[in-house]
Nucleic acid binder design. Structure first.
Length: 501
RNA sequence: GCCCCGUUAGCUCAUCUGGUAGAGCGCCGGACUUUUAAUCCGGUGGGGCGGGUUCGAGUCCCGCACGGGGCACCA
C-alpha cells in the first residue's frame, strides 16, 4: 500500500483504505471469520421449520395498523434492506414467496444480539423467529425475538433498489438476477407451471411420457445441423438429437398409441432472440388422429398452459384459433398468388415486380415460398394462428394432402409473430417415406444447401412394420413461455442461455 | 461469418467541442426505539484489454474480447 492513509490522521477506522470489490469482500470475510468463532458459525447446517413468507402475509392480512400479536413464526431468507433507527432497526427479509419486514429492538434482543443483527450485511441469509405485528405505517412485520445467520454472503448483492439491469450479468450470473428481481423469480416459476400444465394435460389424456436417446447414431426429424460428439469406447461419432420425432414414431408403431417426450433438442445454428442452441421441445404423437385433431389438441394444451399462469395478456388463446392456408397467408401479405406462380422463375419475377425485399437469386420455388412466409407473414401473426397445408418439398415427414396435390397435411402454429408449433398428419407409408428421403438426398447432393434428412433405415423398417394413422405435434416450450409471459428474447426465459466464453 | 451500436465504482446512472471523472445506493465511522428507495453528519471506491495519435485520451484512430440489435443460417 502507498502512504495515502497517513494524511487521514487515524481517528476513523484503522484501515480507511478503498472500498472496491476486494475491500468489500475483505470486510465480509472478516465478519464471516468472527461468526465462525461463535455458536452456529457462519454457515450452519440447517434451519428446519421456516414458513413461506407469503403464507404469513396472507394469514395476517386482517391485522389493523399498529396491531400486535404474540404469534411467533419462523422465516428464512436473504437480507434485502436495512433501515436503522437507533436502538431499533427495520430489515427486509426475502424468500421465494415474498418479502417481510423485520423489526429489531434492543429491548427485545439485548444490546449484544442487537449489535450482532445489525452487523449482518445485505445479502446474508438469515433465519428468524418472531411475533407478527402490523406497523403503524401498515407494513406486516415480524418482531425479531431470535435470529440466526444461515449463510454469510461474501460478495455484495446487486443494488437493492435498481436491481440488476446489465443483461450480460443477468444471463451469465442468473443467481444474481434471481436475488435482485422478484420478476425474474416469478418468471421461472411461471415457466415451471407452464411445463407442468403441458404434462398434466397430456398425462390426463392418456399420453405416455417417454424418454428416447439424446445421443443418436443418426439425427433426424428436423432439417438442422447437429452437434457431433464421440463415444470413446465404441469409437464412433454420435449426434445430439435435433428432434425426437423418429423415435417417437417407432413407439407409435410399437403400439404405445399416445406418447410424448418433453426435453432438450440441440441445433448447431445461430443464436438469436428466438434461437438458443439447446432448447426445450415437447413432441406428442397420437395414433388414429390426423392434423385436424392435433390442431384442436394444441389449442387445448396452450389454453391450459395459459390458465396455469393466469395469462392476462392481449392474445386470445380460446378456441378456435384463426386458420389460414399457406397460400392464403402469403397472398394476404404479399399479394402474390402461388397458384399462378408455380415455378421459381415466375415467383422470382412476381417478387421483383412487387418490389419485395427478398433475395431470390438461385432459389427454388419452395425456398422462395417459405421465405415469403417467414419474412412477410410470420411477423404479422400476433394472435394465435394456424397456417395449413405446406408444400411437400419442405415437409418430408408429413403425409400428402388428401385433396390438394403437391401439398401435405401440415400446419404450423404462430403466436406473438413467431412459430410455436408444427404438426402433421404423419406419413405412414414406408415406401413413400423412402422416396421422400431419396428426394432429400438428391436435393442435398444436387447443390445448394448441405442439410438434409439422413436416410434412417431403422425408422423406415419401423414404418414397414405398419404404423397406424397418426397425428403428431412439436411445440417449442421456450417460445410458448415467451409468448405467455410477453418476453421478446428466448434468453429471458432460459435460465442459463448460451453465451460466448 | 458480415454490418451497426455499446462496455465509466460492487450495483444503478451522469460526465458539451480532447484539458484534474461526478452522484445515488452499498460499504466504513457517528446520531436516531415505527422505518420502508428511512433520514442526518463524516469517510470510501472507477474509464473492458492491447496498441497508436497528442504536450495531454473515458473522449480521436487501429486491433482484440464480451454484450445487444440486424443479416446470413435456422425448411
Amino acid at each position: 500500500m502507498s502512504g495515502s492513509e497517513e494524511r487521514e490522521g487515524g481517528s476513523e477506522s484503522p484501515e480507511p483504505g478503498r472500498h472496491g470489490l476486494p475491500e468489500l469482500m475483505a470486510e465480509r470475510r472478516a465478519k464471516a471469520e468472527r461468526l465462525r468463532q461463535s455458536d452456529p458459525g457462519a454457515f450452519p447446517y440447517a434451519f428446519p421449520g421456516a414458513e413461506p413468507i407469503e403464507g404469513i402475509l396472507e394469514a395476517y392480512a386482517h391485522l389493523a395498523d399498529g396491531e400486535e400479536t404474540e404469534d411467533v413464526h419462523r422465516v428464512a431468507g436473504r437480507l434485502a434492506a436495512r433501515r436503522g433507527a437507533g436502538k431499533a432497526a427495520f430489515l427486509d427479509l426475502v424468500d421465494r414467496t415474498g418479502k417481510i419486514q423485520l423489526h429489531a429492538r434492543v429491548d427485545v434482543l439485548g444490546p449484544e444480539l442487537f449489535e450482532r443483527l445489525l452487523s449482518l450485511d445485505l445479502g446474508d441469509l438469515v433465519g428468524v423467529d418472531g411475533a407478527v405485528l402490523r406497523s403503524r405505517h401498515g407494513e406486516l412485520t415480524l418482531r425479531v425475538d431470535r435470529f440466526q445467520i444461515l449463510a454469510k454472503a461474501l460478495r455484495p448483492p446487486p443494488d437493492k433498489h435498481h436491481g440488476l439491469s446489465d443483461v450480460e450479468t443477468r444471463y451469465r450470473r442468473r443467481e444474481l438476477d434471481l436475488i435482485a428481481s422478484e420478476d425474474a423469480r416469478s418468471l421461472f416459476v411461471d415457466r415451471a407451471r407452464i411445463i407442468s400444465a403441458v404434462r398434466a394435460y397430456l398425462d390426463s389424456n392418456a399420453f405416455v411420457e417417454v424418454e428416447t436417446p439424446v445421443l443418436q447414431p443418426l439425427y433426424g426429424g428436423a432439417l438442422a445441423r447437429p452437434f457431433t460428439t464421440h463415444h470413446n469406447a465404441l469409437d464412433r461419432d454420435l449426434y445430439l438429437r435435433v428432434a425426437t420425432e423418429l423415435y417417437l414414431k417407432r413407439l407409435i408403431v410399437g403400439g404405445l398409441e399416445r406418447v410424448y417426450e418433453l426435453g432438450k433438442d440441440f441445433r448447431n445454428e445461430g443464436v438469436s432472440p428466438k434461437h438458443n442452441p439447446e432448447f426445450t421441445m415437447v413432441e406428442w404423437y397420437e395414433a388414429y388422429a390426423d392434423y385436424e385433431d392435433e390442431a384442436r389438441r394444441l389449442e387445448e394444451v396452450v389454453s391450459h398452459a395459459a390458465a396455469a399462469i393466469g395469462y392476462g395478456g392481449e392474445l386470445d388463446f380460446s378456441s378456435p384459433w384463426r386458420r389460414l392456408s399457406f397460400f392464403e397467408a402469403i397472398e394476404a401479405q404479399t399479394g402474390i398468388d402461388l397458384e399462378t406462380h408455380r415455378d421459381g422463375e415466375s415467383l422470382s419475377a412476381a417478387i421483383a415486380e412487387r418490389g419485395l425485399r427478398l433475395p431470390t437469386e438461385g432459389l427454388t420455388w419452395v425456398q422462395l415460398a417459405d421465405d415469403l412466409l417467414s419474412k412477410f407473414v410470420e411477423p404479422t401473426l400476433q394472435q394465435p394462428t394456424f397456417v395449413f397445408d405446406y408444400p411437400v418439398e419442405i415437409s418430408p415427414l408429413a403425409r400428402e394432402h388428401r385433396t390438394r396435390p403437391g401439398l401435405v397435411e401440415r400446419w404450423e402454429a404462430f403466436a406473438g409473430g413467431m412459430e410455436i408449433a408444427n404438426a402433421f398428419s404423419e406419413l405412414t407409408d414406408a415406401d413413400v417415406q423412402r422416396e421422400r428421403f431419396e428426394a432429400q438426398q438428391r436435393l442435398a447432393s444436387g447443390g445448394g444447401g448441405q442439410e438434409f434428412h439422413p436416410y434412417d433405415e431403422l425408422f423406415l423398417q419401423a414404418l414397414e412394420q405398419g404404423m397406424p394413422p397418426a397425428g403428431g405435434v412439436g411445440l417449442g416450450i421456450d417460445r410458448l413461455v415467451m409468448v405467455l409471459t410477453g418476453r421478446q428474447s428466448i434468453r429471458e426465459v432460459v435460465l442459463f442461455p448460451a453465451m460466448r466464453d
